[in-house]
Simulated assay, not measured.
Amino acid sequence: MTALDPAWLARTVAIALDEDLGPEPGRDVTTQATIPPETVGAADLVARQDGVVAGLVVIPEVVGQVAARLGLPVPTVDHRVADGARVARGDVLAVLTGPVQVLLVAERTLLNLASRASGVATHTRRWADALDGTGAQVLDTRKTTPGLRALEKYAVRCGGGTNKRMGLYDVAMVKDNHVVAAGSVVAAVEAVRARFPDVTIQVEADTLAQALEAVAAGARFLLLDNMPTQLLAEVVAAVRGGELSTGRVELEATGNLTLDRAREVASTGVDYLSVGGLTHSSPILDLALDLEPGTTSTRR
């Protein structure tokens, strides 16, 4: 499972802290007024719901940046579970120990990021479980929260899903508007191949004729959009029937997919089901940071 890029994580956490604390170094007027900087303690990161966790890897970065802003020691983070783990309500996910000012200033930022990622991972795991044994995989889309795409796609991986393209730069996806602008599927595919010969080309189709036209144009990855199950099965059969001459064509079902249809759609023989809702409609997984009793001050 590809890790988060450290440079991206550092930038994202810095932006999140600026949003919460004001420009660096920022301030938390409540915590800094009520808790001496010498006060040390421990806090448990706890799951308040059953689910799959993701984003726990952000915690050390958050507490490290907060400690640097406050000029205090960096708390230790003892992870009790790893990203991708199934957890139950009440499970302790990590124990953070250090200056209480740092713990409380960091609390909301680390919860926002980890709860969001864990919600995506939990939702994705439901799809991955529904498709288990079918041979099909669940894919994400670019329907992500601006600025959090790397985290949300990481969370999809934690939940057992697969990332599609990361952006507009790494895969060409010829959709209906591109076909209209270029004049035809063939013209669009040829234009991409001429300008960007190094990229994979994917073509959207919503009819059997469009799918076969795309394959004839050289596309080896088709997005079968908003097709009823029967039509989807017909398209899969037609495309698979020509693979002795065309070579393997990857097929993705997309549009209006629901969990209760997942296995039915997978049974048509598609390779993938892409689900925008993994990232645009997943509720958070409720997590909490609870300060343990016995917090002490080192002030003399």
Rank of each mutant, 00 (worst) to 15 (best):
P99E: 07
L93E: 01
V87P: 08
P99K: 12
V74M: 02
L93P: 13
L56C: 03
P75S: 05
L96V: 13
L56V: 04
V63C: 02
H79W: 11
G71C: 04
Q65V: 00
D83M: 14
D83P: 12
P60L: 04
V87I: 15
V63S: 00
A88S: 13
V77C: 08
P75K: 10
V66L: 06
T97H: 09
A67V: 01
P99T: 08
T97P: 00
T76F: 01
G64Q: 10
D83G: 10
I59E: 01
R89S: 13
V95R: 15
V95M: 04
A94Q: 08
T76I: 02
R69V: 03
A94G: 02
D91A: 10
G98F: 11
L93Y: 05
R89A: 15
R86M: 10
T76A: 10
G98E: 07
L93Q: 05
V66A: 03
A54P: 02
V81L: 11
P99L: 15
L56G: 06
T97A: 14
G98P: 00
T76R: 14
Q65P: 08
P60A: 01
R86S: 14
P60Y: 06
V74S: 03
G90N: 02
V62R: 08
V66M: 09
A85V: 09
L70S: 02
L56S: 01
Q101V: 05
R69D: 02
V58L: 11
V92K: 08
T76M: 03
V63P: 11
L70C: 05
R86L: 13
H79R: 14
V66E: 12
E61M: 07
G71K: 09
H79S: 13
D91I: 07
G84L: 11
L72C: 07
G55F: 15
R86N: 07
L96D: 00
R89W: 00
A85P: 13
R86H: 06
P60M: 09
V95T: 15
A88K: 10
V81R: 15
L70V: 05
A67Q: 03
A54K: 01
L70M: 08
R86D: 11
R89G: 03
G64D: 06
P99N: 07
G84M: 10
R86A: 14
